[in-house]
Structure formats: C-alpha cells, structure tokens
Amino acid sequence: MAENIIELIDLTKKYGSFTAVDQLNLTIRKGEIFGLLGPNGAGKSTTILMMLGLTEPTSGMASVCGIDPTTKPIEVKRIVGYLPEDVGFYSNRSGYENLMFTAMLNGLSRWEAVTKIDQLLELVGLTEVAGKKTGKYSRGMLQRLGLADVLIKNPEVIILDEPTLGIDPTGVKEFIELIVTLSRAEGLTVIFSSHDLHHVQQVCDRVGLFVNGRLLAEGDIPTLSRKLFTKSQFVIEVGISKEVADSQHDSEESDSSGWLMDLLKEIEGIIDVEVKNGIFQIACSRDATSEIAKAMVEAGEKLIYLNKKEYGLDDIYYRYFEGGESHE
C-alpha cells in the first residue's frame, strides 16, 4: 500500500508567460483512487498530459512506476491507460473493430484480442451493441467503450479525464461503481479528474485540490475538513417552534442568539451560536448534539429541528475557492 506509483516533483508547465502548472508535488500510492479536483483551467488536464509524456514539462520531473514519461513515453503508455476527456472513436467502425485496433496497437495478437475484447464488452455491458458503428452510440455507451479501450492493455494505472462529463445520473452511478469494483478487484491505481464533487466524494480515497495550477491541498476528506475548519469541526443546527419561542422571549430577543448562548454555556466545547433564517447554528469543537438537545428540552423550548452538519467536499471546495486568494 505504501508503494508510490506516481511521483511528481516540482512539476511546472508554462505556456509563454502563462503558468498552467506551478511547482506541483504529488505522490500517489499503488492501488488507491485519487481524485483531481478543481475548476476548469486549473491545470488538471495538463498534469495528466505530463504524466503520460504527451507534453513536456517546462521544469521538474514526473515518475510513473519509476519511469520518466518525458524520456520514455512508450514504456509509460504500456502500463498506463488513459481515457481522454470527451473520448472519440472511429465512427465508421463498430465498437468491436475499434477495440480490436487498440488491442493490436498494444501488441496483442488477433487471437488473444478476441477473448479479451469479449470479456471487456461483457464487463462494460456493451456486448449487444458491439457490432454497431460507434457513430450511433450514445454518450454513455461511448464512455463505457472508452473504459474497455483503456482496460484492454491490462494497465497498472488508469487515468480518467472528466469521465462523468455528459452522462446522465444513473449512467454516472453505474460507471463509477464499475471503476471502483475494478480498482478493488485488480488493485488498479485510478486517477480521475472531475469537477463533479459528489462522485469524487463517493469514490476517492484521497483528493487533490487544484487552483490556478497549484495543488492547494491533498488528503482524504476528513483530513481536509479538519485542516480547513480547525476551530469549529462540528456544526449543529437547531430549530425551535416560533410561537413557543415568542411567548418565552421578547421579540428582539428571539431573533438573536444571546439567550441560547446563555442556555448552552454549561456544555463543554460550544464556541459560537449564529442565527440563519430562523435556524440556530451552533459551532462546537466536539460532537455535543445530545447535550444540546437535552439542555433545550429541559429549558422548555419546543425543539422541531436538529441536524448535525458534516463538512463534505462541497464545503471544502467552496471554502477553498472563496478563499483562493487569501490562502496564498
């Protein structure tokens, strides 16, 4: 598990005066699923191209399975499968023929390829349409054919650039599940770039956040949220019945949070209380949900809503991009 399969050291790519990727340091371990996250133009695709040797880095170096892709692109391409963003196939050939072409480019004999292709078509669920021209395939079918195309060379690493783009939600779910199953079953290292946060969150062991060619943060999602929201890790949302609140407190008071702060001050770890749209947001450094609920009920408040908010990738993402400038 600890074996590093991809190492990027001070990788930099400049287009004229524009820096697409800036001093990138990243290690990816064998067998993990790594998500590259970031807005468009953040340098995700450029990083992928450099890992494959499809473009030369301006400075720094990359190493994939111990091979430098800049000087030995062929060896790297032999073990790395790459599914480009918005993949295309020869539209006047059938899916089967397209796969056969890739198989033979990878040095498989026709006989080996036939078994392999049948296997993969079965896996991605395209066996019935294998004889159809790819020009008539839907977007999701093309993407699944793309996955088969990537897997035909028995790769150790697969790199997927925006694989979920333009597929409907159920299609995305199936596709993602397929990738995860494969990765777990065969110990494949999977890297995929996306700006679809939910899917990344579901799937990835670790993520890297890219903004303006820089890797702002990397790690698994709990680590990232701990890093970001150091003070208030937990937020508990509380709602109380309006009439009851009005009868107990003055009208000015019911909108402010002072009384609640007083009420909760005995509980350990409460940091702050804010009111947002009639819902109280209680920030605390530990999980104090049950104590808060108990205290409120004992105080005679009519509790109608209680929610423990967890920081997902959305919050992490927005927090970073809001504060994109302030983090520099």
């Binding site: 391409k77 032999r78 890739t102 480019l105 793309g146």
Partner: peptide, 14 residues
C-alpha cells in the same frame, strides 16, 4: 476533431 488522436497517441506507439 473526432477526438481519436489523443486516444491513439496514448497507446504505446511512436
């Protein structure tokens, strides 16, 4: 334009 070029060049060929 058919976006096949990057797929082909990702195969182990010169």
């Amino acid at each position: 334009n058919n976006r096949t070029l990057s797929r082909i060049l990702a195969q182990p060929i010169y």
